[in-house]
Simulated assay, not measured.
Amino acid sequence: MFDDIQLKNYSELHGALDALLEENLNITANLANASALLNHFLKDINWVGFYLYDEQLEKLVLGPFQGKPACTTIEVGKGVCGTAYRGNDVFIVDNVEEFPGHIACDARSKSEIVLPIYKDDKGIGVLDIDAPIYERFDEEDRVGLIEVVEIIKKYL
């Protein structure tokens, strides 16, 4: 469906994501397609996906993703994902080795951005993106990916 489309900027990504997700209201299918689209669009990344909050486990659990196999659970408040989720705050980490308590699922990852997903004050999970280079993510990524999360939330 998107093989021939070359998305040039976040605005185009947002339009493509909205069109892709409106076809299906299943959360797993939508998050799988969102991670695939982000993997196609974003350059210099090695992992993109979702960790979803499991109320019974009281942990974040691996959801749809693109990349190498990953950690299956993350405690709330631990690592970049758990910290971002607990504080409902976007984290950009220029060097993951300098983040206290960083959880290394892929040793190639050097930088990371994590965006919490909350809807109606209820924690859903996080969007996690890793890169094999330092300082990969910037303000443009933060703003563009916040809008990605907003689009995803419309279909949850």
Score class of each variant (00 low, 15 high):
T83W: 03
C71A: 10
G63P: 12
E22I: 15
Y85N: 02
R86V: 00
L37T: 09
G77F: 08
F99M: 10
G77N: 10
A84K: 00
Q66C: 08
D120P: 12
P64A: 07
E75N: 14
K110E: 06
L115E: 03
I151V: 15
D54W: 03
L60Q: 03
F65E: 02
G49T: 00
N30S: 05
V96F: 01
Y10S: 12
K78N: 12
D121W: 05
V126Y: 03
L57D: 08
N24H: 15
E147I: 13
I45F: 06
D120C: 11
I117G: 01
G49A: 08
Y85D: 03
L31M: 14
V114D: 04
T28E: 14
A131C: 09
G15M: 08
V148F: 04
Q56W: 07
A104N: 11
E75R: 06
N88E: 09
T83I: 05
M1R: 13
D120E: 14
S35Q: 04
V76N: 03
D54I: 06
E140H: 11
E140N: 14
A19S: 15
R142Q: 14
E147F: 07
K43Y: 01
E98P: 00
L145V: 14
N88F: 10
M1G: 13
G15R: 08
E58F: 05
L115K: 02
G15C: 09
R86M: 10
V76F: 06
I117Y: 01
V93W: 02
F50L: 04
A104E: 10
V61G: 02
G101M: 04
V48N: 03
D141G: 14
D128M: 06
V80C: 05
Y134C: 07
L7N: 09
D3H: 13
D106W: 04
E135P: 00
K59S: 07
Y10M: 12
K59N: 09
E139S: 13
E55A: 08
F91A: 06
V90N: 00
N33D: 13
D130N: 12
K153Q: 11
L156M: 14
F99Q: 12
W47S: 03
E139V: 14
Y134D: 08
Q66K: 15
G63I: 05
N26K: 15
G79L: 03
I27K: 13
N46D: 03
T72M: 08
K8P: 02
I27E: 10
L31E: 00
D3P: 05
H102S: 12
A36H: 09
Y155N: 04
L156E: 07
N26A: 11
D44H: 12
D128I: 05
E58A: 13
P64N: 05
C105S: 11
D4L: 11
G125F: 06
L13A: 07
K68G: 00
H40Q: 14
Y118R: 08
C81R: 00
I124V: 15
V114T: 07
N26H: 14
Q66F: 02
L127R: 05
N39Q: 12
K59F: 03
K119F: 08
D44Y: 01
